[in-house]
Amino acid sequence: MFEIYQHISNYLVYSLLGLEKGTKLSMALEFFIYDTLKIFTLLTLIIFIISFIRSYFPIEKTREILSKNKAIALPLAAFLGVLTPFCSCSAVPMFIGFVEAGIPLSAAFTFLVASPMVNEIALGMLLSLFGLKIALVYLFFGVLVAIFSGFLIGKLDPKRLIESYVFEVKLGSQDIKNMTIKERIDYSVNNVKQILGKVWIYIVVAIFIGGFIHGYVPKDLVESIVKSGGFLAVPLATLIGIPLYSNSVGVLPVIQALISKGVPVGSALAFMMATTALSLPEFIILKQMMKPRLIAMFAAIVGVSIIVAGYLINFLFKTS
């Protein structure tokens, strides 16, 4: 499928630039051009498909389904969170909308974790760099982390730490808009454009660095670093990921290169979960309706769940 890209990169490196075959530089450059073309093609396709699916699950519909199935709201919120489009800037109105519809707070928190964590850009990067198996592992553990975190926060009586206006305001009425197929396609194309517009530069730089690691960094070196401090890799990856914004999944090509040199995959997935589910800008947004203590609890619970998930994934991949 990507043979044409191999030809293009061969042509650019050897015919147009006239580099010698077999040198480290020409191989690295060839790899860089090929990988960039391949990753962007796959990303475009995957983000488009996932956006299209997500266009069938607007937040208004999810709210309606959850409010009608309160008994199973917790797992349902995680499942629907995966399918519902989410922007952290909408976290507050979404949360209020859920509360107003009588959805349990635990389920609202579960949604708040699942929806940004399993998103189109994260899945797009995972599928194009690591393949279906790793993407499914991420999806499964993402849902698990979301359910567990929501459940635990629900047990800690979060209501006392949420501003009282959240429980008082009334949502105006708005019909769920029914999109035509053409509108869904437009929506998905726009989403691809806006997401890639934000992250393309990170991805290109990351592929470049990844190419450098592939070509120049010896495997022994990475393995010895992992051996000496490997146990801390998961919490470290999570802690680094927490303050970063979800655009940071663009750095994934670097991580992929490290994995090919011996870094365990659980650390990479923990990093991704942390960047997407938790971020400083989101904490600032949540401060509009939550006491800092609740935000700290939220971050700690989700963070620890992610670390546990990271270790579990490492364990699974070691034994299999």
Binding site: P58, E60, S90, Q174
Partner: peptide, 14 residues
């Protein structure tokens, strides 16, 4: 203003 957003009955911005 969050209250302005809610007045229109929607949960996603802008």
């Amino acid at each position: 203003d969050i209250k302005e957003v809610l007045k229109y009955g929607v949960m996603t911005t802008p």
